[in-house]
Design a protein around this nucleic acid. Structure first.
Lengths: 209, 209
DNA sequence: GCATCGACTGAACGATCATTCATGGGAATA
DNA sequence: TATTCCCATGAATGATCGTTCAGTCGATGC
């Protein structure tokens, strides 16, 4: 997907009450940054690239955002919050560990396939964030890991899971989802098929023999 | 691991017969580039960063290599060739599909954990390669995928594997290995434990129910 | 002991970078 | 219609980029 226009609100620089025009420009700016960061990386992208893709002058970028890094931060935060929400919603869908696991892996994979442009930025451009911003993002990442861990531990406690290593089972579940952002292509395997297959494989390697 | 000194030979720019001193500098340059590209990305790294890490002047870089991109190319090529070799060696180790799968996942994981610095460059900086260099690297990547596919298809034909989707089973096997380069930390879970757990999980999700 | 030559360097170049500044235009309000 | 002020701009700034150039240095061969 990417950034919804209703999630585009007053960032650090701009006035609190944005006009419709300003909100629209802000949204286009974020989409443009998302696409260029994803394709060329943060350091490989110039503010002129972003401005051109958004259809404005390089200067106008600074009317809405205080820096190029702020754009990366906003994209990272939105993406991480969305991913955390996806995981939490899936875990709320049932009490049965196997059903929850299937839903979580399925939805996590779906999210990374459909939002692969944003997810590439979210997962591979972390090093370009400023110290404070990075700390905030890492906190959200820890929450995602924590949700996964609670799913795995709960399933083990209930006798529904028996992975060879609970910590590495969590790592594997995350890797299967995150790495989709790296290899996914729009003209390849459709998201739904990826999600179904990955959910099935995850259930298999978590289930007791 | 990283680059062995014996794999450091005449690159594009330098004379064919290198002195011991030149070979040593070349090797330090490649190690330095590997480390900085891995930490800050290709575009986030300056030639001055690399030179400083190698203990030489920025100018000396061009005595041994024609450009910054050439360094990335040499690292990418070495890394991909090593990964392909790891996969091929593992597949040669047995005729039994399950044994081969276990060896392949184990060794592929070991390689990405031990060479995580290089593997980050290899897997996440492809976009910075020049057109010709990228084509050459992508050809090696296709060979790696092809080896994995033959393993999976062979196992299915022999009745030893029954994954929910053979194409996505290959994707999952690659993701488990590659993504280690993203999350691995030297002070975390040791490579051998990762490799064992991943091999066990892979066997579980490939085996018929 | 001297000449040679490969390895290396400091200074510099043009290009391009993120960002700022002074200013203009146009939509919304009165 | 007149006024206001947000949104946007062209031009410019200092910094930094990848790379080149004209040499220096020190080890090696005679």
């Amino acid at each position: 997907m990417s950034i919804d226009s209703d999630s585009v609100s007053p960032p650090g620089n701009a006035p609190s009450r944005g006009s419709r025009r300003a909100d629209d420009t802000r949204a286009r700016l974020l989409h443009a940054a998302e696409a260029t960061f994803s394709a060329k990386g943060f350091h490989g992208t110039t503010t002129r690239d972003i401005a051109r893709a958004a259809g404005i002058s390089p200067t106008a970028l600074y009317v809405h955002h205080s820096s190029k890094e702020e754009l990366l931060y906003l994209i990272s935060r939105t993406g991480h919050e969305q991913a955390l929400q996806v995981v939490r919603d899936a875990l709320r869908s049932s009490e049965d560990p196997v059903v929850r696991l299937r839903a979580m892996v399925h939805d996590f994979a779906m999210y990374h396939a459909r939002s692969h442009v944003m997810s590439r930025v979210v997962n591979y451009e972390l090093a370009a964030l400023s110290g404070d911003h990075l700390d905030e993002i890492l906190a959200i990442r820890r929450e995602i890991t924590e949700e996964m861990r609670s799913l795995v531990d709960g399933g083990i406690a209930a006798g529904a899971f028996d992975p060879p290593d609970r910590r590495l089972a969590v790592a594997a579940l995350i890797s299967l989802g995150v790495d989709i952002a790296r290899w996914y292509r729009d003209d390849g395997v459709p998201p739904e098929r990826i999600a179904d297959a990955y959910a099935a494989m995850a259930v298999r390697f978590m289930r007791p023999n």
